[in-house]
Nucleic acid binder design. Sequence first.
DNA 1: GCGACTTTGTGCCTGTGTTCACAAGCGGTT
DNA 2: AACCGCTTGTGAACACAGGCACAAAGTCGC
Lengths: 278, 278
Amino acid sequence: MTSHGDDVQGGEDRSGTGDRAAAKESPDVEVPAARERARAIPEAAVARLAVYLRVLSGFDEESVTTVSSEELAAAAGVNSAKLRKDLSYIGSYGTRGVGYEVSVLIGQIERTLGLTRKHSVAVVGIGNLGHALANYGGFPSRGFPVSALFDLDPDLDGVPVGGIPVRHVDDIVEVCQEREVTIGVIATPAQGAQEVCDRLVAGGVSCILNFAPVVLQVPDDVEVRKVDLAVEMQILSFHVARRQQDAATANGADLGPLDGAGPVPAEMDSVNGMVVRP
Amino acid sequence: MTSHGDDVQGGEDRSGTGDRAAAKESPDVEVPAARERARAIPEAAVARLAVYLRVLSGFDEESVTTVSSEELAAAAGVNSAKLRKDLSYIGSYGTRGVGYEVSVLIGQIERTLGLTRKHSVAVVGIGNLGHALANYGGFPSRGFPVSALFDLDPDLDGVPVGGIPVRHVDDIVEVCQEREVTIGVIATPAQGAQEVCDRLVAGGVSCILNFAPVVLQVPDDVEVRKVDLAVEMQILSFHVARRQQDAATANGADLGPLDGAGPVPAEMDSVNGMVVRP
DNA sequence: GCGACTTTGTGCCTGTGTTCACAAGCGGTT
DNA sequence: AACCGCTTGTGAACACAGGCACAAAGTCGC
């Protein structure tokens, strides 16, 4: 899957190597570890819960009151078993033989994702993308009011975009503290991104969504998610290439026992999308 | 990784259950499976390769000719062992005791990702986001020339955005075929997305980058990647909530053996970010 | 030329995420 | 009230990804 989900930044590195030895020594005292693990919903599951929430909202608008895991899974584009397991992480809110009540599920997912508390958002870098983000209707409607905009350009200072006046990046720390911004969105070019990031952190922002094509350095207690459009494209490009190659191999000689030995692809030369061998 | 990367859509469902039995029967004839697997670079590795490529381009511009896995890994924000393993998927292009030659690595990664062939891109939905994408400098500079724009609004028909005239969505099939568009970007609202998607597919587009908050239905031979900004936000929100909870538990009663039995979090009620128990 | 040092490439092991398959449980029906 | 069909929730098996640690293989200095 396109794990996009699999991103590079934001990886949790605290491996459990340390307590393994301890657990082996006294198998009963796993409680603290289990406790920590209980709250630990797999990263991938969290991403999917957000998707389920969106789908459920759709059902709710159509006045659907009950869904089965099968229906919901189909609508969300996942396996029903996976869906049930994902939902089981947040508790047992289904009725066997019936399904899940839409409203209950929405409430519980929102609670789990921390959406009961509104998070105010700051967008830095009011270029094309920043404009788009500032005007993006999806944020406020989902509980993410954009409450501050920043840009380096002094000409933009005070100019309202999407109803919110743009401030200079020098004011980031001050404004973020004042408005209790919890999520910062970096939509600047690569150069300024780290500097902006540092200021956001200084302003008390604990989560950053980064559109700039750089790997940000942040303290451990700050969470970064990265969206890199060029990377997304390149991943797609890879799949095109793989498909073309597959098609080419399927047409030509199908089973070449000659190269059955090792990992092949490094030795192949792809020219114009055709596979060529010496 | 926060598998931001982990996305939901685009999951490969062709599981290998079928050939497992076959392999058991005659252990030597794993060749076709191995063959297919040989070309299969792990999804997560592909995403990282794209990141390495960007970092390497940076080095190249600074006229750095050689990098060690350690340096490159640090710049890309990953473990050096992981980096070496990722690079090993595309072949052995390093020199032991020295490192990797930047230019060679760039060339090989580009080849692997299929960037030797230019992919022309079509953007559908010229709203705020579409504008941003049409003007996004990152695409052409990385080998993704935007060669067509579409919108539903007849008033936009013919209006140039970022130097390219916008066409009506009715022309999608025709134009995509004519210009051999391989990647379609959907930046429309949710309603129109599936319809647009169908047309892109009819126009021969095999890869779609979807910004609309819907799960697209596509044939098996079309690859979809989804970028959902609201979902990204919600994932961040989850991490804020988790952190606050952690902090709260760390301060208050640390070890409550009472609830050591089962999965706890479903039973907890979070009000205003504080953990409350009955 | 030889030895010491450096860095790659990879085998192995651990942990995480996914899938399967089935028991447990609930509602409706007779 | 007992049965039957349907759907959830989860235990167990499996595949995948990550990280360590080390042998292989090269360079540099002498």
